[in-house]
Design a protein around this nucleic acid. Structure first.
Length: 338
DNA sequence: CGGATTTGACCTGCGC
DNA sequence: GCGCAGGTCAAATCCG
């Protein structure tokens, strides 16, 4: 997926597009509504923009995420998506989309991730790595895991004949390896592992070079779902958690099946929200926004059908400026109605 | 007791 | 070829 070279956007010198509600929201401009949320996170509709796109050889495993991303990259596309005039789409940065191609091992490496985290506005930032695999300078190191399942017979041979195994390893080496699509999220949070609606099993933890914070490796617990995620804390901004998803879920989110808005936003990180009365009218809290990204990191990840044709009932019926709803969702952080 | 987490060992790929 | 770093495995341990 070649996100760079896409259309429009307020791209800074770091190659970051900054799109979000900025001063407009603070001054009572356009307000997010439940419909926006649906569009933002659940829509399967492509948001067309010019440029970008992958070459014929490039693996673009799904179109919806690409379109989804590109919708962010293109203010006009985002405007169409949100059904607002394009000039109303601000270029202030609350949501920053990293459209750079990530070098060595995506942005997940300590240095690269840290750099990205430092460059990006920490709150509510979304970083998408170039996921094509072929186009990347270096292949990923994952040989076990999914590949292991595919090569069970090979492994059996390997046990019987180590020499043969070596040959196979050499042969495999020559093969082009494909990297699964990766999507990274930068989230301000005090907790490392943010609740995202899926169940994960931790299978490893590694110290990251040049970072005081380890990187944790998680795998989706659902059988035959090979989705992995890495969680690490930015060493330059320890308050920022970098979550990188890799692969496609082959099932619905357990949380989405519950359809509970309360569960949707249930995350320890949310307890760090400032008092809601400090939020400007109509302002969609960036942390909350980020949590939603965490909950539905990638609409395209779900294989058919879409996980939720409609948002949870609570989201359909309320605006997020609805104080009563916020009180229901965040009783610990919501004082009585001001 | 079963599932999740921890953690050291191991594998792989890349740079020098 | 060697060392380094990322990524994974799997036994040990923890926990509800």
């Amino acid at each position: 997926m070649s996100c760079g070279g896409g259309g429009g956007g307020d791209q800074d010198r770091h190659g970051l597009y900054h799109l979000a509600r900025g001063d407009d929201a603070a001054t009572g401009g356009y307000q997010f509504s439940s419909n926006d949320i649906e569009s933002f996170f659940f829509s399967q509709q492509p948001v067309g923009i010019g440029g970008g796109g992958g070459s014929a050889d490039e693996i673009v495993p799904y179109s919806s995420i690409t379109d989804y991303l590109q919708g962010f990259l293109d203010p006009a596309g985002l405007a169409r998506h949100l059904d607002v005039p394009s000039q109303d789409v601000p270029t202030k940065h609350q949501l920053s989309v990293d459209v750079r191609s990530h070098d060595r091992d995506s942005q997940g490496t300590g240095s690269a991730a840290g750099e990205g985290a430092a460059l990006l506005t920490p709150k509510s930032s979304v970083s998408f790595s170039s996921s094509g695999g072929e186009g990347e300078g270096k292949s990923h190191r994952c040989k076990k895991g999914p590949a292991k399942e595919a090569d069970e017979e090979d492994l059996q041979d390997d046990e019987e004949n180590p020499k043969k195994a070596t040959n196979k390893a050499t042969k495999k080496k020559a093969e082009k390896r494909q990297r699964l699509p990766r999507v990274s999220f930068l989230t301000k949070s005090e907790v490392d592992h943010l609740e995202d609606g899926y169940r994960w099993r931790k299978y490893g933890q590694k110290a990251v070079k040049n970072s005081a914070y380890p990187r944790s490796y998680y795998r989706c617990t659902t059988p035959k779902c090979g989705v992995k995620k890495r969680v690490e804390r930015s060493y330059q901004d320890p308050s920022t958690v970098i979550t990188t998803y890799e692969g496609q879920h082959t099932h619905h989110s357990p949380a989405s099946l519950r359809g509970s808005a309360a569960h949707l936003f249930m995350s320890p990180g949310l307890h760090t929200l400032p008092p809601p009365h400090l939020m400007p009218p109509g302002m969609f809290h960036p942390d909350l926004m980020s949590m939603m990204h965490m909950q539905y990191p990638n609409p395209g990840m779900y294989l058919p059908p879409p996980p939720m044709a409609t948002p949870p009932a609570a989201l359909q019926q309320h605006h997020f400026t609805d104080y009563a709803l916020l009180q229901d969702l965040f009783p610990s952080t919501m004082p009585n109605n001001p």
